[in-house]
Amino acid sequence: MTNRFEPGHGRPDPALSAIMSERRQLINLAYRLLGSLADAEDVVQETYARWYAMPRRQRDAIASPGGWLTTVASRICLNLLGSARARRERYVGEWIPEPLPERREWTDGVTADPADRITLDESVNMAFLVVLESMTPAERVAFILHDVFRYSFAEVAEIVGRTPAACRQLASSARRRIRASQAPATPTTAQAGIVRDFKRAWEAKDVSALIGLLDPDATVIADGGGLVGAVLRPIAGRERIARAYLDVARIAPDLTLLERTVNGQPGLIAQQHGITVTVFAFRIAGDRITNIWAVRNPEKLRPWTAG
């Protein structure tokens, strides 16, 4: 991070290091709230713009700059979540949260600053983010701030403009949604083996093997954003899914499938001519795949694509 200087002064802002050290926390918070790295980056940029728009004396009077930044970023996210529903009604096809690679797999030059990288844990796996999408904006903010980032309900109340008791209820409601959606835990190594078997069966065009790896009620959701080809509605049922993927193999024989970490869990990417064109995230219950999320919207593949 290069030094920034306070306008009108010939020396660095003495509070700069403390202020900029919050950047990673803000990126992590905003991504979990919005499900979009691009939107999270915009939120953090706007948050810092508001900080530096204040007179120096007013900034110096703030006892907890980190708390101020978190409050402002959270409120911006809350406003964005309120308008996101209307935007997604106009979205072409299904909307899936933006997938993230493992830290060491980030493409050089796309997110060069380590402070911009997301900490990968269970609160960013794709199944978790998809459930968050079903929550109200207030539920989502209260839950993420309290359960994930460990803010007290009094602090959450100040951010969302509700009472602590109301925020406690919001987080409790969100928690019930999460519990209702959770599958029995499958060890990561077992998940990786199932994803690898899926990849091999797909490459071998083995429909029986594909069907055997899928739950009878499995679903596939694809997100092309209207920018590239993708099924506009979910595909349900393992036979239909298996045959759909065999169709893809026939239509695009030059696809290269690679095992990658997607939002902290085993996943796949598909490349054509060395460029990532699809990222696949999986939800696995026991020894069967129950959900596949296929992100094809190129605007959501920046960290995966050389450029």
Rank of each mutant, 00 (worst) to 15 (best):
F149Q: 08
F149P: 07
R150C: 01
R150M: 03
Y151S: 02
S152R: 13
V156D: 14
V156N: 14
A157Q: 14
I159S: 05
V160M: 09
G161P: 05
R162N: 06
R162E: 14
T163P: 01
C167N: 02
R168D: 07
Q169W: 09
L170E: 14
L170G: 09
L170T: 12
L170C: 00
S172G: 00
S173G: 10
A174T: 04
A174Q: 12
R175T: 12
R175S: 08
R176I: 03
R179E: 05
A180P: 01
S181M: 00
Q182C: 03
A183D: 05
A183I: 03
A185G: 03
T186W: 01
T188F: 01
T189S: 05
T189M: 00
T189K: 02
T189A: 07
Q191R: 08
Q191M: 05
A192D: 06
I194Q: 10
I194G: 05
I194K: 12
V195D: 06
V195T: 10
R196G: 03
D197R: 15
R200T: 06
W202D: 09
W202M: 08
E203L: 15
A204Q: 13
A204W: 12
K205T: 14
D206Q: 12
V207W: 02
A209P: 08
G212Q: 10
L213R: 04
L214K: 09
L214R: 07
L214W: 01
P216F: 07
T219G: 00
T219A: 10
V220P: 04
A222Q: 13
A222D: 02
D223E: 11
G224E: 11
G224M: 11
G225M: 11
G225V: 00
G226K: 04
L227G: 12
G229C: 01
A230H: 06
V231F: 01
V231T: 07
L232C: 01
L232K: 10
A236D: 08
A236N: 09
E239C: 08
E239R: 10
E239G: 04
R240A: 12
I241V: 11
I241E: 12
R243W: 13
Y245G: 07
Y245L: 14
L246A: 08
L246H: 07
D247S: 11
V248D: 15
A249N: 15
I251N: 07
I251M: 13
P253I: 03
P253E: 07
D254P: 04
L255F: 14
L257R: 12
E259P: 02
R260P: 07
R260V: 14
T261R: 08
V262N: 10
V262I: 14
G264N: 06
Q265N: 06
Q265K: 11
P266Q: 14
P266A: 11
G267P: 11
L268F: 07
L268T: 09
A270G: 11
Q271F: 01
T276Y: 05
V277A: 05
T278C: 04
T278P: 02
V279P: 15
F280D: 04
A281P: 05
R283N: 10
R283A: 12
A285K: 02
A285L: 04
A285T: 03
G286N: 09
D287K: 11
R288G: 03
I289M: 12
I289D: 12
T290W: 01
I292V: 15
I292K: 09
